[in-house]
Amino acid sequence: MPPKPHAVPLCQPLRHARFRQLWLANMLSNLGSRMQAFAAAWQIATLSHSPQLTALVQTATWAPMLLFALPAGVLADTLHRPTLLFRSNAVMALTAVAMALLAYDGRQPLPALLLLTFIMGAGLAFTMPAWQASMSSLVPPQEIEAAATLNNMSYNLAALAGPALGGVLYQLAGAGPLYLLNALSFGALLWIYRRWRTTPAPRTAAVSHGMGSALRISWASARYRALLSYAMAIFFVSAAFAALLPLLHRDAATYGALMGALGAGAVLAAFVLPLARRHAARRVVLAGGLGIHGGMLMTIGLAASQPLRLAMVVVGGVAWSAIVTTLNGAAQQAFPDAVRARTLSVHILAIAAGQTAGSAAWGMLAGYCGIVPALTTAGLATLACAGLIACSKDFLETV
């Protein structure tokens, strides 16, 4: 019997050369993406001063996932994944160049910024199923959860440095350099994808047929249905943090520091979570993460000082990493490689539905009753999710 995923040392997947190369290149790309996300959110927050418009940055980012996740998953299962990844990353790099040109030209039209953010999200939508399926296929099954934790740590190392660096660069030179750096950050990934030569996957299904099979296979598993339902609900309630945080402060450096603190907590989680998983079931880890994250959402708007807010967000980042890696690890282990990308696309679709609807909903609620009450309500809803999962069957252990 293979060892349990949580028994695998965190760095063990890095022994595999291709996984290691892609992990390092993706970390560089994540750094650029986090700086761009900071610049776009801060630009729109300062130009509009509107909770609804600011929240639309998250909506524009996640709506493409809702629209394209299923066809993207089918394409990832039926086409040559490195070629698909090269093309989707090239689209994102070109979109970043377009955003940089707008910024350097001095024009900052909100509709154009939101449209380009949407196109960037579309590129990410076509990347995610192929990326997750490719990375999990590069390691043995018992290392998949460790690989998911490493991928999340890569993302959050960038989340730690990206917003802080972005805040400094934004104050010194504006948004243009941040967008340009993001375009350049795709270089290493594009180079690796160009060199990655494997036998193309057989094109055995039309996209429309494959989309139906993705839904059918996913829906046939009661445990996977439960995973999808909880993922949608969790991302709906948690969307308030990213959607409303730019409006809590009107200073780019402060906003960048808070986003960096979230990344710092998630990096710390890479060392804390293996110990937690050694002593607790996945359901308990997920419920605990939700409880802590919900408490952070409830109190972040009421904190009296910036150091206290930073400490709270660091703890919230640990909790958020526990939530994301637990859900992603379960989704990646649910089905064999032949259908993994398309079933992962349904998982991404559920997350995108929750994040897209949540961003819009919390933005409207903040516009109606204020930012702090909206965050407090989101925190209470997150605590409710934690309670439901704590009292549910241990579906994550047997997906």
Rank of each mutant, 00 (worst) to 15 (best):
T376D: 05
M27W: 07
P5I: 08
G295W: 10
Q52S: 15
S359C: 08
V237P: 07
A240C: 04
L115H: 09
F68I: 10
P202K: 12
G295F: 03
R342I: 08
A222Y: 05
V318M: 12
W23M: 04
L150D: 03
G379C: 03
N156H: 13
Q108M: 14
G212P: 02
A41V: 09
H279I: 06
A280H: 11
A353S: 15
V315F: 11
S137H: 13
Q52Y: 12
L290T: 03
G288Y: 08
A253K: 11
T78P: 03
P140L: 11
A93L: 00
W219S: 13
S154C: 06
L178F: 10
D105H: 14
A201T: 10
F126G: 01
G288M: 11
L396V: 09
Q332H: 11
S185Q: 08
L172V: 13
A146L: 06
H347P: 00
A100L: 03
S33D: 04
Y230C: 12
A69I: 01
S88E: 00
W219E: 04
T127Y: 12
W131T: 00
V314Q: 03
G301T: 08
R225S: 10
T326I: 06
A45K: 07
G187M: 13
L157A: 13
G212W: 10
W62R: 07
A122F: 00
A374R: 01
W191K: 02
G174T: 03
L258C: 13
F395Q: 00
A220G: 15
V207P: 05
L85P: 02
G187E: 01
V272E: 01
V139C: 08
L286S: 07
A220D: 14
V74S: 07
P202R: 13
V285R: 02
T117K: 05
T78Y: 00
Q108V: 13
G187I: 04
A240F: 05
A76S: 11
P246N: 07
L84H: 01
A55M: 05
I389T: 03
W23T: 08
L47V: 09
A239L: 01
S321M: 15
L178R: 12
A350S: 15
A161L: 15
T127P: 01
G363D: 04
A103H: 02
L262A: 14
L56W: 05
A357N: 07
P82G: 05
A361W: 04
Q171P: 01
A276K: 05
A90G: 10
V91C: 10
A350R: 10
G123P: 00
L84P: 10
A205Q: 14
G166R: 03
T46Y: 07
I192W: 12
I234S: 06
A40I: 15
L275K: 15
A100V: 10
I144M: 04
A381D: 02
M259D: 09
Q142F: 11
A231S: 15
A374I: 07
A173P: 02
A243H: 08
A7D: 15
P13H: 05
V57T: 13
R309L: 14
G329E: 01
P82C: 05
P246V: 09
S305G: 12
A206M: 06
S134Q: 12
S208P: 01
A93Q: 02
R20P: 00
P111F: 10
A206Q: 13
A322E: 02
A188R: 05
G106T: 07
Y230F: 14
A41P: 03
L180N: 08
L110Y: 11
S305D: 09
A360Y: 09
